[in-house]
Simulated assay, not measured.
Amino acid sequence: MSKALLRYIRLSPTKARLIAREVQGMNAELAIASLEFTPNKAAKLISKVIASAVANGGYDAQDVIVTSCRVDAGPVLRRFMPRAKGRATPIRKPTAHILVEVGTQKVQAKKVESKSKDSKVADSKNTEAKSAKKPAPKAKATQKAPAAKVESKEDKPKTAPKASAAKNTTAKKKTEGEEK
């Protein structure tokens, strides 16, 4: 894996990050080719940094991929523009640092395989832990319904819900049946 770093570039880091996200994980040759035809100042600079990282590692651009492309904020140049009535408004001229890392595809494949093995082991542990924590499903216990409340006519609301009205009528029928 090799790196290249371009520092103090007169470029907005937020605009450069948009381009940097596009090339992460791409083949270096494909990334350089696509960036050459992108009409953006950041695209041309990032393609040069990718080419430099490939050359620093002594690789061929076809054999490597861009593992990470990071754009950090550099110092901001502050200028002032004179305005009306003796005022001055600030002008911010941001700078950026571009860091590109490239690596061979074989190394990336090994990393992906090891991560997938680790994730499978972690997944199996998580499922075992969840099954151990989860109690066995219990049979539904029959719960006794609370005894129906007999209310006087004064306590009853004028419009009772249908469900409670059904309970009251069944309770009345039971009490009437018991009395007879």
Rank of each mutant, 00 (worst) to 15 (best):
I65S: 12
V76P: 04
A53V: 01
E128W: 13
E179M: 12
I98H: 08
A136E: 08
K180T: 13
S47C: 07
K15E: 01
A96G: 01
T95P: 04
G177A: 14
E101G: 05
G177P: 05
K174R: 03
A42Y: 00
N168L: 14
K110L: 15
P39S: 08
S2L: 06
A166H: 06
N27K: 05
S114C: 11
A20H: 04
R78T: 06
V64N: 00
K174N: 05
T127G: 03
A141R: 14
T89Y: 00
L5S: 10
Y8L: 09
A51S: 05
A84L: 03
P39H: 12
P75M: 04
R87E: 10
Y8D: 06
S152I: 11
A139L: 11
K173P: 08
V71P: 05
L45F: 08
A147V: 10
Y59H: 04
V64C: 08
L5K: 14
A4L: 05
A42I: 03
V107T: 14
I46T: 03
S52I: 00
Q105C: 06
E101M: 11
E176K: 14
N56D: 06
L77Q: 05
K162G: 06
K167R: 07
G58I: 13
I65K: 11
I50P: 03
V100P: 07
P135C: 06
R70L: 14
S12L: 02
A20T: 06
F80V: 11
S114I: 15
K3M: 13
R83I: 05
L30M: 10
A163T: 06
K110T: 12
R79C: 01
K133Q: 09
T14M: 12
G57C: 07
Y59K: 01
E29T: 02
K3N: 08
M1A: 12
T170E: 15
A132V: 07
A73C: 07
T142Q: 07
H97F: 08
V66G: 01
E178C: 08
K44S: 01
T175F: 13
G74S: 10
Q143M: 10
K125I: 11
N168H: 13
G86F: 09
A42Q: 02
D60W: 01
E101K: 05
K138H: 15
K117C: 07
K162P: 10
M81V: 10
L30K: 09
V23N: 02
I32P: 04
A145R: 14
V102F: 02
N126L: 15
T142N: 09
D60N: 06
D60C: 06
D60G: 08
R21Y: 05
V112G: 00
K48Q: 11
F37H: 15
D63V: 04
R17K: 11
S2Q: 01
S164N: 14
K149T: 09
A73N: 04
E178Q: 08
G74L: 12
K106M: 11
P146G: 07
A42F: 06
K111T: 07
A147E: 00
S12Q: 11
K138N: 15
I91R: 04
A73D: 05
A96E: 04
V107I: 14
P82D: 00
